[in-house]
């Protein structure tokens, strides 16, 4: 993989993704036998990934707009502008993510759970077993086998604790940009106990109480990051944590939470050169590739 793939060191932001379009210029899609597309329409960001003969060829990542169909179209349009590839050249499209049923040109919808596992298996290799995805409004914990097939999973989209949204609330309360929370959480004289309330509403009052009791802002942030790490770890424990730990989603960009999760688990998260936010769309494109191998290509759906 080329170094250009690494976007995580550019301006670290939380779930407020950098819009980003990339293509592997060493390859020519015109010579590929099977070209498949995965579209992941999330609540915050949308991705389009192009896979040529089972290998990652291009992707585009952008903020989700007002509606899922347009977000899907725009994500694909970015790739067209970059590579000249149009829907007529694509042999199958699979949609995933929260808006997966609203991708107007997709042949099939597959859940983000299965797609994340498949994508992580490609990015991190067949040693990936435990996947954590923390998005803007949900948190997923997935256990998979060496083929990237899901063996155990859970999702939590009911409660804001342990999601990007929970972090945003604390960022607002402390009046500190979200990207600074992670680094600041390590600038403390002593690591504090975790905030005891899980509920974000109550954690907010608890955080105010800690400030009144003389905690510095950084120490309150540290206590909150620790609480978030503990919560995420408790979810991971339900599905069984194994070595080969892969993190995707906004949380991957917050070292304040990631390092604390690693410490609690005693396992380091795997490194990847590919931006982990495309895991879902990549998995969808890989599923599409398998389908093309099995059933042959499908005619494009032009809305």
């Amino acid at each position: 993989m080329s170094e250009q793939l690494n976007t995580s060191d550019k301006k670290p932001e939380f779930w407020r993704w950098q819009e980003n379009c990339w293509a592997d210029e060493s390859k020519d899609w015109r010579s590929a036998k099977a070209i498949t597309v995965g579209i992941d329409v999330g609540s915050v960001s949308s991705q389009c990934v192009v896979v040529a003969d089972g290998e990652l060829f291009a992707y585009n990542s952008m903020r989700t707009g007002n509606n899922s169909p347009d977000s899907a179209k725009n994500a694909f349009k970015g790739v067209t502008e970059k590579t000249g590839l149009t829907l007529n050249d694509v042999h199958m499209v699979v949609g995933t993510g929260y808006g997966r049923v609203n991708v107007p040109f997709s042949h099939k919808a597959i859940t983000e759970i299965a797609c994340h596992a498949r994508g992580a298996n490609y990015m991190g290799g067949n040693k990936v077993r435990t996947i954590l995805d923390m998005g803007g409004q949900d948190c997923k914990a997935i256990h998979c086998d060496d083929k990237g097939k899901v063996t155990n999973f859970l999702m939590n989209d009911k409660c804001a604790a342990g999601t990007g949204r929970g972090m945003e609330v604390i960022s607002d309360l402390m009046q500190i940009p979200i990207a600074e929370l992670g680094p600041r959480s390590f600038e403390v004289d002593q690591e504090p106990e975790a905030v005891s309330s899980v509920c974000v509403v109550f954690a907010k009052s608890e955080a105010l109480g800690l400030l009144k009791a003389g905690y510095t802002k950084n120490k309150v942030i540290a206590a909150y990051c620790q609480a978030m790490a503990e919560r995420v770890v408790s979810l991971l424990e339900r599905i069984g944590v194994e070595e080969g730990f892969f993190i995707t989603g906004g949380i991957a960009k917050n070292p304040g939470v990631v390092k604390r999760i690693e410490k609690l688990l005693g396992i380091k998260a795997m490194d990847t050169k590919i931006d982990s936010q495309i895991a879902g769309a990549l998995g969808a494109a890989l599923f599409a590739n398998t389908l093309v191998q099995k059933q042959g290509p499908l005619a494009p759906i032009v809305a």
Partner: peptide, 16 residues
């Protein structure tokens, strides 16, 4: 596959 449906919030963990 074990599929867990539900959630965890401040009051407890509720998964089927």
């Amino acid at each position: 596959m074990i599929a867990n449906y539900g959630y965890k919030d401040g009051s407890g963990e509720y998964y089927i």
